[in-house]
Design a protein around this nucleic acid. Structure first.
Lengths: 222, 222
DNA sequence: GTCTATAGACGGATAGAC
DNA sequence: GTCTATCCGTCTATAGAC
């Protein structure tokens, strides 16, 4: 009672080690869940990837389901932070191009986050349905309203604004989720290169801006 | 030796039952693999979905891996059959619109096929890499060459033809793979309806045809 | 707080009766 | 050809030593 089992001279180090271990486990879990889905992932694989004994996973997170939940929450927070605020006064072309670029950078640098989310959606999204039908739904409706406002003002061509947003997501996220397919079809034996992401960004941006009448399309000569 | 264990009066029925069981198992397997991936799927779940004892799965297919392989091969055959022949003399707008419509119909009517394929791609496509880097690569290169030919002839606007094909795939397949997301965001509590697939088809077709300069885009009035 | 050892449930696959 | 019963490996989770 007069002392603790460990010296109290270094409370910060304790907390730091704890946070570091949690961070390592979350990172490892994101990778393993991305590659195997929830059911296919094993705590042993996560532990090995994290370089820790299997029991530590349970010490920090209790169950595999809670760890998965923590990984999903982390990804949703990342997603929401990527949804830059868009105002009615912004320039349509700049705003759309910037948004596509931001999504592509996430695909390039956090591909496993996108893959975990994609796995969950393919499975019918049992654990994130609430998020999809509340926050995400509201975000889509708010941003589609801004696009519709721009259209009504004649600042861009009429488009199906909700589907445009959906299709921007899938075109950008496919470069993370299905990287294996695009690398194989493009003959990139060492995976996609930065130039591939740049080319994809350009192609998507051109497609969206032409669709919205924000850049000229060369007319057919015939 | 003078007779077999079963009467030979009905060889066709034997073969028919066999084919029917194989068909039922394949269909059940497609559904279970779609919802859980290879590792997450269990032979017990497949057997229950097929309404057969678990041992029958192994009797007909040997191992879970061989069953999965059979399901993948079936899907690849379906995919290849959807790649209509496209010739240089065809009309660009009609050809692209028909192709988008065909892909959307597959997404609507065989969503589990698309999901099994998506699962495999997210995992890094270990089992279909050969297909991706041979047949699919050649198909893409051949079709992109036709688009480039149309562009060179001035029959459509310049586009990044390979990425255009990739993005058509993902925009159409997302309506199968991520149906849960779109249904939640659109507030469809009973899943996507036929009208949703029609709206998506229109949105994708408009996007692609505007990008290729094959339909006019209303200019900004300002 | 950390790790080894293991309990207890579930998975794929098969033997052998029918 | 079909199905029940079961083997054996792997999985999640935890008990208990350190």
């Amino acid at each position: 009672m007069d002392n603790n089992t460990e010296p109290m001279t270094d409370e910060n180090a304790q907390g730091r080690i704890r946070l570091e271990n949690i961070e390592r486990i979350m990172k490892a879990a994101e990778k393993v869940f991305a590659g195997n889905g929830f059911r296919g992932a094993t705590t042993a694989a996560i532990a090995e990837e994290a370089g820790l004994p299997k029991a530590n996973i349970h010490y920090y997170f209790g169950t595999k389901a809670k760890l998965y939940r923590a990984v999903l929450d982390d990804i949703i927070a990342l997603w929401l932070s990527s949804f830059r605020e868009i105002g009615e006064e912004d320039d349509p072309a700049t705003t759309l191009a910037d948004y596509i670029r931001a999504k592509m950078e996430l695909s390039q640098h956090r591909p496993n986050a996108s893959k975990v989310f994609a796995n969950e959606l393919i499975r019918g999204a049992p654990r994130i349905n609430k998020y999809l039908s509340t926050e995400l739904k509201e975000w889509v409706e708010a941003k589609a309203a801004i696009l519709d406002h721009w259209i009504a003002e004649g600042r861009m061509a009429p488009v199906d604004s909700e589907r445009l947003l959906f299709h921007i997501w899938v075109m950008t996220q496919t470069w993370a989720d299905f990287e294996a397919q695009w690398a194989a079809v493009l003959g990139r034996k060492n995976g996609l290169q930065p130039a591939d992401f740049d080319a994809a960004t350009d192609a998507i941006t051109t497609m969206v801006l032409r669709t919205c009448g924000l850049v000229p399309v060369l007319p057919r000569s015939s």
